[in-house]
Simulated scan of single mutants.
Amino acid sequence: MLFSSLLFLRLWRWLLPVCVVLLAGACASVEPRKASQPAFTTVYVVRHAEKDPTPGLPDPSLTAAGKQRAQTLVDTLRKATITAVFSTATTRTRSTAEPLATARQLPVQPYDARQLAALAARIRREYKGQTVLVVGHSNTILETVEALGAPRPVPAVQDSEYDYLLQVRIPQDSTQAASAVARRYGVR
């Protein structure tokens, strides 16, 4: 009995410091939970709202219905934490982007619709883990989705369709593919 007690004490003297070191290491590796960066960068892509249909206008403005749709976009994205707004240089795209940019106190940043790869690279680099809005044209919004690395969520956007709201999710993990979904907003 005395022998087993002495053995236990010797073992305990050796085991106790080891347990303390292991416990301290485990506690040190547990950091307070920080607000982590979202796992995705989210990009909303929309076409400009309804434009003046008068033939031959070089830079048509929005119709009353288009102005209403631009306002509806603000309401539609009210829960999204938009941190940047991009628009081409036309009156109709800027007029679609401005109500949301104004509501969020953000500038409307211009981009060149012929340089979609540059826009996509900028969003990936400067807005990682954030949510942005891109306003383009019927012949550029699906190409924007593709430039962001996602497949087209619809085969085409007709010239008469102004109500698509495309949502692209770009994973922070570059081994995962980007995805896109299409939904409609406002009055069709």
Rank of each mutant, 00 (worst) to 15 (best):
S87Q: 01
S87A: 06
S87C: 02
T88C: 08
T88F: 06
T88G: 08
T88E: 05
T88I: 09
T88W: 02
A89F: 00
A89P: 05
A89H: 10
T90A: 05
T90E: 02
T90R: 03
T90G: 00
T91V: 04
T91N: 11
T91A: 13
T91R: 14
T91S: 13
R92G: 00
R92M: 03
R92H: 01
T93C: 01
T93M: 04
T93A: 07
T93V: 03
T93Y: 03
R94G: 01
R94Y: 06
S95C: 00
S95E: 07
T96W: 03
T96D: 05
T96K: 02
A97D: 06
A97G: 01
A97R: 07
A97Q: 02
E98R: 11
E98S: 08
E98W: 04
E98V: 06
E98I: 03
P99I: 06
L100T: 10
L100V: 10
L100R: 01
L100I: 08
A101D: 06
A101M: 05
A101I: 08
A101N: 04
T102N: 09
T102L: 04
T102H: 06
T102C: 00
T102Y: 02
A103M: 11
A103Q: 14
R104K: 13
R104M: 06
R104L: 09
R104D: 03
R104V: 01
Q105L: 13
Q105I: 08
L106H: 03
L106F: 02
L106P: 02
P107E: 13
P107R: 11
P107C: 08
P107L: 15
V108H: 04
V108T: 08
V108F: 06
Q109D: 13
Q109E: 15
Q109C: 04
P110T: 12
P110C: 01
P110A: 12
P110S: 07
Y111Q: 10
Y111K: 13
Y111A: 09
D112G: 12
D112M: 06
D112F: 04
A113H: 12
R114S: 15
R114V: 10
R114D: 15
R114L: 14
Q115S: 14
Q115D: 13
L116E: 05
L116P: 03
L116Q: 06
L116D: 10
L116V: 11
A117T: 11
A117K: 14
A117L: 12
A117S: 12
A118Y: 15
A118T: 15
A118P: 02
A118R: 15
A118W: 13
A118Q: 11
A118H: 13
L119Q: 01
L119M: 08
L119I: 12
L119R: 09
L119T: 14
A120L: 08
A120G: 05
A120C: 09
A120M: 12
A121K: 02
A121H: 04
A121R: 04
A121Q: 14
A121W: 01
A121F: 00
A121E: 11
R122C: 06
R122G: 12
R122P: 05
I123L: 09
I123D: 01
I123W: 09
I123Y: 03
R124F: 05
R124G: 13
R125M: 11
R125Q: 11
R125A: 10
E126W: 04
E126F: 10
Y127A: 04
Y127P: 00
Y127S: 01
K128I: 08
K128T: 13
K128N: 03
K128D: 02
